[in-house]
C-alpha cells in the first residue's frame, strides 16, 4: 500500500468533502480516504497495482478542485 497526500488550493464548502470522498471511493484500489477539509488535504492509501496517484489527482481536479501538490510515500 502506498500513502498518497493531495494538497488542494482551496475547499470552501463542507459538501466538497463528501463529493471528493465518494468520488475517490469509486476508484478500485483506493482505501482509507480521509478528506481534511480545514487543512485542504486529501489522504488515501492506494494499491499501486490497481491505480496510481495521478488517477486520484485527475478525479479531484475533475470535480473542480485544482491539485497543488502530490506527495507519495
Amino acid at each position: 500500500m502506498t500513502k498518497v497526500t493531495l494538497k488542494l488550493s482551496n475547499m470552501s464548502c463542507p459538501s466538497c468533502m463528501t463529493k471528493i470522498q465518494k468520488a475517490l471511493s469509486q476508484i478500485n484500489g483506493v482505501e482509507k480516504i480521509s478528506v481534511l477539509f480545514n487543512a485542504g488535504k486529501v489522504k488515501a492509501e492506494i494499491d499501486e497495482s490497481q491505480t496510481e496517484p495521478n488517477a486520484l489527482a485527475k478525479v479531484v481536479t475533475g470535480l473542480g478542485y485544482p491539485v497543488e501538490k502530490i506527495i507519495v510515500k
Binding site: S15, T18, K19, K22, A23, Q26, V59, G62, L63, G64
Partner: peptide, 15 residues
C-alpha cells in the same frame, strides 16, 4: 451548473 454536472458524474446529488 458545471459543478452540479461534475458531481453528478460520480452519482452525487449536490446542493
Amino acid at each position: 451548473l458545471l459543478r452540479a454536472a461534475s458531481a453528478l458524474r460520480y452519482k452525487i446529488v449536490s446542493i
